[in-house]
Each structure stands twice: as structure tokens, then as C-alpha cells.
Design a protein around this nucleic acid. Structure first.
Length: 479
RNA sequence: CGGGGUGUGGCGCAGUUGGUAGCGCACCGCGUUUGGGACGCGGGGGUCCGCGGUUCAAGUCCGCGCACCCCGACCA
């Protein structure tokens, strides 16, 4: 740590983000351009995200599997729009064991093709359906401009791949998994998101329909935080995924895929973080509570540590994830700032005064300074801490929701629209024409983020061309 | 691939008219400190991005590479 203070968000949001990722000990740059090393603190956060999602996947009937990272290049070429979408960003392996390969292999940019190939072998009968599999893995996409967590050459994620007998079932799955993501984001990460359908230009290459979750970051830009695709029969036809139905007739399957990546960590950083550093939601934070002991000499240390041990046993017994900062040679003040940088939701301070008063000091990360501090009795500390954590969790969501809504507006006209998307989200009518989307993008850098399922009766006029709108859309500048 | 910039201990930088490399932070040791980013003393650490050239002498001047960063066209 060369400087004490983080660059401020208002002065340079980008610099704030880049510094914070490093300073909070989440991740670092890998030696190859555009690669990321996720450090233990960041990975623990990812593990907590994984667990929260995995629970939800299991409870909706999915099972996990592992698939190869290397895919025959010809697989990618099988589905027309998939090739077009991914060709520019493929990493291709042409040499193996010192010999030129007969057929190049690609490092998976996503697994639809190898899943298609495999499902074609696994699925013979309607009795094999639905097939509900999820993969936890990493993928590689050769991006030009990279940024830790948001866009790196390799990133970690989960990709769900399901096959169904009917369109309706596949559609239901696509929608269900979007709801799983929304529930996770809202109730675990305290990230409120808009959601809906992607326009044709923003759709996943190879999908009939893409749903997405769009969150507003602290700089009022949008971040696509998860996607769910109804792939129709596109991959089923390309890879010949067929089954015999009850009438002994061959039918193509209907497939879906859906994913959430380590990018979501970026969403959490930029939803909750402030100029002091990260603010992590208690349900996902690697440490929910950090205890900082305070003492001047050996005698005080002995007294203080005795209380620290007792309190920590108590809190851990109620299942809290707890960290005691017993590092020597660092002042309490330094430790306060350090854990604030890392976003620990609640700090417990225990010093000689607390030993004497049978109290502890509490400091809420989400309320900086004196307002977030209080002294409470050691007696009954467990329930008090749990209550505060629950409150923080709730208030983070409330705050983020209020921020999102305060910065989302319905424009009166195109001039007003331009003003809005320069610093927020616009919700407005669109004629459905790609030309209008493109013009808006060239004009304002704002893109069509998604179109909500619930539409007003009167969708009004297209904000760009003034013709009748087909639906209302969120427009925003996006990551 | 276009435009701009930078390469010097782990990180951030300084290095004058060419004269044999320094500062802050971090790191190690000892001591004093410790309720909001402590201090003193001592210490370790460098193919100055690479190659070639000019010169008695190159971090510094010249040429050619390479890498990375920022801004544009593509993207979870």
C-alpha cells in the first residue's frame, strides 16, 4: 500500500475501481495481458456466491458436471450465429505435445457446442428429458480492453445447460433461471436489478431469446449481471439432439443456457462501495465480523484477549463468519481503515475500557464515522450482532434501490433523453427498429439494456424516430 | 488495427550540460508506541524493457524491436 487514501469515486470512478480491487485484496493482474489472479479474499467471496447460487440450482432440480476446456474447432462452426458471435474472440490451440494438430482446438468461450455434441449422445427418449446440468468452470474470450472482474481474457462462472421436450418447458426454464438470479442478487448480494428481454442486437449468438439482469453501478452505468437464454432448437438442429416422443416419433429438443460470472463481484463492488473502500453484504462477505483488539502493553493485552476469545467463541457458535485481527505492530486505527477497505460489514472493537465496562464497541461499515459506532454490553452480544447484520443487509438493498430509482427517468423528448442517459438510466418507448438503437448508440453511447416483461398499456412513441413504440425499454451507457 | 503515452528495487517516482543510480512506501531487525492510517535507529534488495550504435564513458544521445497503459471500432 503506497498511499493511504483511495481515489475518490466522484473524481475518477475508474481509478477508484481499479485501486479498490487491488487494495481490498480481491484480485491482481496476471502476467499475461488481460488475465486476472483472484486472491484468496476475492475467491472466498466467489465461493460464497457459488454456494448461494448452487443451493438454488440444486433446489430447482439441476446437477453439476465437468466438461472439457478444449473443444474441436469445427464444433464452433456448426451454429451459424454462434460462429459469427464468437470467432473474433477465440483462443485457438494449434500445437500439442510439440506437434501441429490435425484439427485445431479452441479453448471454450462457452460450452453450448460441446454440450450439444454430448447431449445428442445422452438423449434418446422423452424419458431422458428434461436434462438439467450446470457447470462451474472458467472460459476464455480474447477481449481487447480488459478490466479486473468486468472483462478479462479468462473468467470464472457457471453455465447451466438444459434440454427439454417442448418449447414451453424450455421457455419456463429460461424464465425460472432469470428469477433465480434476481432472487440471488436481491436477497444475497443486495443488488437490485432491472430485468427483461434483450433486443435482437444484444442477444446471445445462437439464442432465440435472451433475458438479462441489469444493475446500476455507482457511476450510473449499467452492468449486465446475469443472462438466461432460450436457445430454441438452434443447437438441437446443429448437433442433432433428438428424442423419440411417446408416439415413437423423432423430435428435436429445446435447449436453454444461463450464466453468472465473477463479473458479478464487480457489480457488488460498484453497487455498494464508497470512498473508504468495499462494502460487502453480510450474507456473502468472507468475514461478517472483524474483531480488533486494543491494548497498550502486555497486561492490557492479556485482559483484552481473554474477552476477545470469549466474544469470538460466542459469535462463532451462532454461525457467524468471524475474523480476529491479532496482527502485531499495527495500530488499531490502521486496522480500522484496512478492514473498511475490505468491506467487512461489522467491526467489533475491544479495549481496556470495554474490559472494565463489560462492553464492546461496534462500527457499521455502511454508516461511516461516529454515526455508525456504538457501545453495547457484552451480555447478549450474539443476538445484537445478528440483528445489526440483518439490518445492514436490508439497508444496503434499500439504499441501492433508492439510488437506482432516483437515477432512472422517463424522458419527455429526445433532448431530454440525451440529458438522462448522460448520467442515469432512461425508460422510454422504442419502435423496435435496429436503426433507432444504432443511432441512439452512436449519438449518446447508451444502449438498449432490456425490455421489461410487464409493459404499460400505452407504450407511447419511439424516443428517437417518433413512430409508435412497440414497447418500453431501459437505455443506459453500459460496461 | 488507428491516435496518444510510459518502460529505472515489490509499488509509486526522481535522475540536471552523458561521469559509474537515488527518494517515498512496502520488506527485515531492535526499541518506544497502540480507542481512526505511529515513530526512531539500523539493514537487505537494481541485467535502469531488449538488441545494436555513437563515446574514454550511456539510465541519459541515436536507430530498430518488444511490452504495457489510456482513448476509439467488438464484448459476460
Amino acid at each position: 500500500m503506497s498511499e493511504d487514501k483511495l481515489p475518490s469515486r466522484s473524481e475518477d470512478y475508474n481509478d477508484w475501481y481499479n485501486s479498490l480491487v487491488i487494495r481490498a485484496d480481491l484480485a491482481d493482474y496476471g502476467p499475461a495481458r488481460g488475465t486476472m489472479i483472484v486472491k484468496p479474499y476475492g475467491w472466498t467471496l466467489w465461493e460464497n456466491i457459488q454456494q448461494a447460487l448452487d443451493r438454488r440450482f440444486k433446489s430447482t432440480g439441476h446437477v453439476n458436471a465437468g466438461f472439457p476446456m478444449l473443444i474441436p474447432k469445427s464444433f464452433i462452426d456448426r451454429e451459424t450465429s454462434h460462429v459469427e458471435g464468437f470467432s473474433p474472440e477465440l483462443a485457438v490451440v494449434t500445437v500439442g505435445g510439440g506437434k501441429q494438430l490435425e484439427e485445431p482446438l479452441v479453448v471454450r468461450p462457452t460450452s453450448e457446442t460441446i454440450i450439444g455434441h454430448t447431449y445428442a449422445k445422452w438423449i434418446k427418449s422423452y424419458r431422458d428429458l428434461p436434462l438439467l446440468v450446470n457447470l462451474w468452470n472458467s472460459v476464455v474470450r480474447w477481449e481487447l480492453r480488459t478490466k479486473l472482474f468486468l472483462r478479462t481474457l479468462e473468467f470464472w462462472w457457471q453455465e447451466g445447460h438444459t434440454a427439454h421436450a417442448t418449447y414451453e418447458e424450455a421457455q419456463e426454464e429460461t424464465r425460472q433461471m432469470l428469477d433465480v438470479y434476481l432472487d440471488f442478487a436481491r436477497n444475497e448480494a443486495a443488488v437490485p436489478a432491472f430485468f427483461g428481454r434483450k433486443s435482437d442486437s444484444e442477444r446471445f449468438p445462437g439464442a432465440d431469446l435472451t433475458y438479462s439482469m441489469e444493475a446500476m453501478m455507482g457511476d450510473k452505468k449499467a452492468l449486465q449481471a446475469a443472462t438466461s437464454h432460450n436457445l430454441g432448437q438452434n443447437f438441437a438442429r446443429a448437433f442433432d439432439i433428438q428424442y423419440l416422443d411417446q408416439n415413437n416419433e423423432m423430435q428435436y429438443c429445446w435447449t436453454t443456457s444461463w450464466g453468472l460470472s465473477t463479473r458479478f463481484i464487480g457489480a457488488m463492488i460498484m453497487t455498494h462501495g464508497d470512498d473508504q473502500g468495499l462494502i460487502l453484504p453480510p450474507r456473502l462477505a468472507p468475514h461478517q465480523v472483524v474483531i480488533v483488539p486494543i491494548y497498550k502493553n502486555h497486561d492490557e493485552k492479556a485482559l483484552v484477549m481473554e474477552v476477545v476469545e470469549r466474544i469470538s467463541r460466542l459469535l462463532e457458535s451462532s454461525g457467524l463468519r468471524l475474523k480476529i485481527d491479532n496482527r502485531e505492530g499495527l495500530t488499531p486505527g490502521f486496522k480500522f481503515n484496512d478492514w473498511e477497505m475490505r468491506g467487512v460489514p461489522l467491526r467489533v472493537e475491544i479495549g481496556p475500557r470495554d474490559v472494565a465496562n463489560e462492553s464492546v464497541g461496534l462500527a457499521r461499515r455502511d454508516i461511516p464515522g461516529r454515526d455508525g459506532k456504538s457501545f453495547v454490553p457484552q451480555e447478549g452480544i450474539g443476538p445484537v450482532v445478528e440483528e445489526i447484520l440483518a439490518k445492514i443487509q436490508l439497508e444496503l438493498l434499500e439504499r441501492a434501490t433508492a439510488f437506482r430509482d432516483a437515477n432512472t427517468h422517463q424522458p419527455r423528448d429526445y433532448a431530454h433523453f440525451k440529458e438522462i442517459v448522460a448520467d442515469g438510466f432512461a425508460f422510454t418507448g422504442w419502435c423496435g427498429g435496429e436503426e433507432c438503437e444504432t443511432s441512439i448508440k452512436n449519438d449518446t453511447k447508451a444502449t438498449n439494456r432490456c425490455m421489461p416483461f410487464e409493459q404499460p398499456k400505452d407504450v407511447g412513441l419511439c424516443i428517437y424516430c417518433g413512430r409508435a413504440a412497440v414497447e418500453q425499454v431501459y437505455f443506459a451507457r453500459a460496461y
